[in-house]
Amino acid sequence: MIKFDTKIIESRWVSPTLDLLLYCSTIYASIIIENYYTSEEKVNFGEINAIIVFLCIGLAVFKFVLRVCEVKYKESRGLIEGRLKTINDKYSKVNSLAVRQGRNIQNSIDSLLENLGKELSFEEQDLKIDRITLFAYQKSTNSFFVLSRWSLNTRYAQINSLKQYPVDKGCIGKAWEHGWWFDNSLNLDTNDYNQYQLNTYGLSLEEVAAMSMRSNMYATLRIRNKVFLGILAIESINHDRFEEPRIKEQMTPIANLLGYLVYHLNGISTLAKNEASIEG
């Protein structure tokens, strides 16, 4: 049994070699015909042969070039297809990793807020009067979105699921503008409280009424990692619950860690937008 190597067929030399053989055979046939008819008819077979030879050489060169191009094209196509497959595989891995990391980020953020709450001795307060909230800045809507909230008081821990918080209102708006904001001067009766919220924070009577927590103390810190990313806010019903220097000192390292996490989350969001398609 003869072993046939398919690589021979795929070689760029096969096709032109076959063509050359064919043309040589034609020329040889032409010469035989010439020898046979020269004595009887006055036809210049020499010139015809010369033309055939030139044509054959031209065709052979042309076909050779075509063949080279074809092989090169196949090589390039194979290379591109291979690269595309690799990119697709990598993207699928990145995508599933992003989903997992999104969940990991959530767990990490929740843990950090809980730890900060414990560090600030939230648990020692029988009245459960404090809460911590992480607001993330959402570029597409130019507003804040609550990423996580922690409080021992279940009512204060509730999140208005889809609420978008304006960047220029409330204590978060102040921190967004100044970097740090501390206010413990809200221990006021209802009328004065509402007026204070309107004058200081730009919040209307309806907005104040809709608040789930009537806080008398705000400590808010802007989080950043290369860019501004959001706000870490601590509120308390008790206006003298915390001292400004101490709470700022305790919030800062947590805010830095949160900065890394939210920055990473923004990276996932950007990836999702870059890879997305919008079709009609």
């Binding site: 979105f145 609550v146 999702a272 937008k273």
Partner: peptide, 28 residues
């Protein structure tokens, strides 16, 4: 709907979805 979805996924995932929804809204 987004309201129904918000109770099924985590806040960080909802953040991504909401950000993308805002992006689509802006683009259109």
């Amino acid at each position: 709907t987004i309201n129904e979805l918000s109770s099924l996924i985590e806040r960080t995932e909802l953040f991504l979805v909401e950000d993308f929804r805002g992006y689509v809204e802006q683009t259109l």
